[in-house]
Amino acid sequence: MIVVENVSKSFVLHNQGAATIPVMKGASLRVAAGECLALTGASGAGKSTLMRMIYGNYLTSSGSIMVGDVDVARAAPREIITLRRHTLGYVSQFLRVVPRVSTLDVVAEPLLATGTSRADAVQTARDLLTRLNIPERLWTLSPTTFSGGEQQRVNIARGFAYPYPALLLDEPTASLDPVNRATVLAMVNEAKARGAAIIGIFHDHAAREAICDRQLDMTRYTPGLAA
């Protein structure tokens, strides 16, 4: 489902004397449907960077990134937009929302964007929020004022609202208490069971062990850090 082949990335900072900073070299990986791969490595090893490149948020300097039939490294913006809507989900580390939109609408959005009726989308949103223990009285409020843990759970609800065939999870259990962490892990397992290919970053060893089938240490692809 996800095939990364020989991917490299450098940043060129034009306003700092055109300093070139290579951050990744020759990264490759494969994730099949129903599999969960964990990216590991010290901070700065490029885990989030690779995830963003797979999502199309960062450009790839060289190599290919296949998600299904689409090479994200080469695809036109339009194709990536379609991919993000129907195929590839991304739960980032921080919740980023349009101000003043209610929590229900935030979570329902991926469903609305794919043509689900408003009634069904909102119902799914309610179910997810209930499962993640977000109290009903918060549902009509904007999540921008919530605590870190609440925001993270809203983020996860949004990421899991639509059944993406491929999912990228960046620290999904950080800032969660044990009960909610268990819920999230269960949700990830359910996604695996329905055939989603998942790449995750988990600082939490236990979580990593619980749901990931394989691990990949990104340090070997980081110039300057590789042994």
Partner: peptide
């Protein structure tokens, strides 16, 4: 030119980098 989040998060051109920063 490109995806909005890509241009803003990973700007390539000197001017874009200046704008974003």
């Amino acid at each position: 030119t490109g995806l909005t989040d890509q241009v803003l998060d990973d700007p390539q051109h000197a001017y874009t980098q200046l704008l974003v920063s």
